[in-house]
């Protein structure tokens, strides 16, 4: 048992049972995060990033979602078997989430002040008036004048809405913050401001962070670790150096090969040849097999995580073979 983990997920499986068949969104995912660390969760659209994040809060919509998990510990607390009453105490307090689209994430009929204060009132032992006062401080902290607290979301720009959402998420100083593409909906200058804001608040409250993004530049800028997702699995995870410089997984290799310059902030992940697999009909064994230049018949068997070092694992069975390596050169 590692008490130093803020998050410990083992074998997470999430299915969506829809009329058009079962969508296998997350398939036996493992993810661990040390306290105070920041991990970037990257992967193409549909890889299951948001679904994984929602599982941590147990907010996967049910129906159609079905969640199964061997272990899901948040700061040592068992989330999977927790009664809903206790979960409500943890949501917004121990773990907060910033959702993908700031335009729709705020309730249009309550003032922004009320929406921040609600979180404080729910989790801290304070009066409504006190909670509102602290909401004003929170607003100032994210760079919005306190006198705008009694305005409604429609009076705010996208960037300001995102600031409000960050204020809500950080109002009770959570131990873990999950940011689901917090900047994709915003224009580039606002993006940089948002990242600075998240970084400085994270340092201030020593919050652990899961940063979900398509943008490897963002990962390089604010994360310590990277987890690459493909078809509902983390297929490679390690420190920034591990994954960026000592890339192991063929899919990760493909990602980097499609990016000319990592320091160019505007570069997004561009798809590799072939298509992402249909989540209602995943191939057996390694889901990347149809697109992988290194595939062999062994790849059709079930995959497990192979540790390259203490911090670095890859889910690719060819690393069981002696001397297997991909083409990408290690960068020292």
């Amino acid at each position: 048992m590692d008490n130093n983990l803020i998050l410990d997920i083992e074998n997470l499986v999430v299915r969506f049972e829809t009329d058009d068949g079962t969508v296998r969104a997350v398939n036996g995912l493992n993810l661990q995060l040390e306290k105070g660390h920041a991990v970037g969760l990257v992967g193409e659209t549909g890889a299951g990033k948001t679904t994984t994040a929602l599982s941590i809060l147990r907010l996967v919509p049910d129906p159609p979602g079905v969640v199964e998990c061997e272990k899901l510990l948040l700061d040592g607390q068992d989330i999977i078997n927790m009664p809903i009453k206790d979960l409500e105490k943890i949501r917004g307090k121990d773990v907060s989430m910033i959702f993908q689209d700031p335009m729709t994430a705020l309730n249009p009929v309550f003032t922004v002040g009320e929406q921040i204060a609600e979180s404080i009132f729910l989790h801290e032992d304070v009066s409504k008036a006190e909670a509102y006062k602290r909401a004003l401080d929170m607003l100032e902290l994210v760079g919005i004048p306190a006198e705008r607290a009694n305005e409604y979301p429609h009076q705010f720009s996208g960037g300001m809405k995102q600031r409000v959402i960050i204020a809500i998420a950080l109002a009770c100083h959570p131990k873990l913050l999950i940011a689901d593409e917090p900047t994709t909906a915003l224009d580039v200058t606002i993006q940089a401001q948002m990242l600075d804001l998240i970084r400085s608040l994270r340092e201030k409250y020593s919050t652990s962070l899961i940063m979900i993004t398509h943008d490897l530049g963002i990962v390089a800028e604010i994360c310590d670790e990277v987890a690459v997702m493909y078809a509902g699995n983390v297929i490679e995870k390690g420190t920034l150096e591990d994954v960026f410089n000592r890339t192991k997984h063929p899919y990760t290799e493909g990602l980097f090969n499609s990016i000319p310059n990592l320091n160019d902030r505007k570069v997004m992940l561009t798809p590799i040849k072939g298509f992402t697999p249909d989540p209602t009909n995943l191939p057996p064994g390694c889901a990347f097999e149809p697109r992988c230049p290194y595939a062999c018949e062994n790849c059709l068997k079930e995959q497990k995580d192979i540790y390259i070092s203490d911090t670095h694992f890859v889910r690719c069975s060819r690393y069981e073979e002696d001397g297997f390596s991909i083409d990408r050169k290690e960068i020292q």
């Binding site: 809060l57 949501r91 907060s96 959702f99 689209d101 729910l122 809500i168």
Partner: peptide, 10 residues
């Protein structure tokens, strides 16, 4: 979406 935000707040 804002109902999900509310739930995520606790």
């Amino acid at each position: 979406d804002y109902l999900r935000t509310a739930r995520a707040k606790g």
